[in-house]
Nucleic acid binder design. Sequence first.
DNA 1: ACTAGCACCTGATCGC
DNA 2: TGCGATCAGGTGCTAG
Length: 280
Amino acid sequence: MPELPEVETVRRGLAEHIVGKKFKKIDVLHPRATSPKSIAALTSLTGARVKAVARRGKFLWFELDRPEVLVGHLGMSGQFVIQPKNAIDERHLRVRFTLGRHELRFIDQRTFGWLGVCEAKDGIPNWVEHIAADPFDPNFDLAKTISRFQSKRTEIKRALLDQGVMSGVGNIYADEALWRSKMHPETRTEKLATKRVAELITNATEVMSEALAVGGTSFDELYINVNGESGYFERSLAVYGQEGEGCPRCGRQIRRITFANRSSHFCPKCQPTPRSNGNR
DNA sequence: ACTAGCACCTGATCGC
DNA sequence: TGCGATCAGGTGCTAG
């Protein structure tokens, strides 16, 4: 579910509500909720105080008043919500952090999300090291990112979703960025001019910041912020989930194709099929 | 060293 | 009403 704008919305809510708070009690209610197994590592954070909440791409972490960090990923359906202590348990409640009068709850229907404890080096958790900077990161290196795209031997949509090339983009914003760039999702990366890659990165960054400005994209109750509120970018989507609808630019019917085990939505007129798809 | 494919889950929806 | 197939915002392992 959540891509960079949604995760950043959650991060801001967490920063607002729990920085300075202490984990008075931690209850793990589902074994898959905690990453590399250990429930013990998570519960060992009892008594820790939250100093900051950070993010790279779709990974979140809590900086604490101790050397370890609490790392989290929302997967497809993870949520962090702040609830009064006496609120009834949600159906998919996985971890409860008691803060005082309130609780921080980690809820996750599909259990692809996880929380875990690890060490950090230079402010980056070990488990996040393999993730490239996202375009909102002050350390984002545009030239290096472009050459990582160009050194791939695959379709551009796969490269956009590769969090080791550039992080933050998921299936929604990949399709939206490709539409804005008038680029077919199956365009081969090795054929792309530097200028085209730069345009694509700019468009991905712009569509994500527009989404962030309205709290992200919510199709249903699976994505909400820490206060349980939805985002409003769904109404601004040009192609994602718009199969059969008219392209906002030319009116042609939006198509959906499946590859890499997921759907890609595009306008067949604005984003024509690349003339040669490699050598077949 | 790479890339593509699939596994990991729960739940909603659609066609028969 | 029921049942199987398909789909859903992501990541990581592993077989080539």
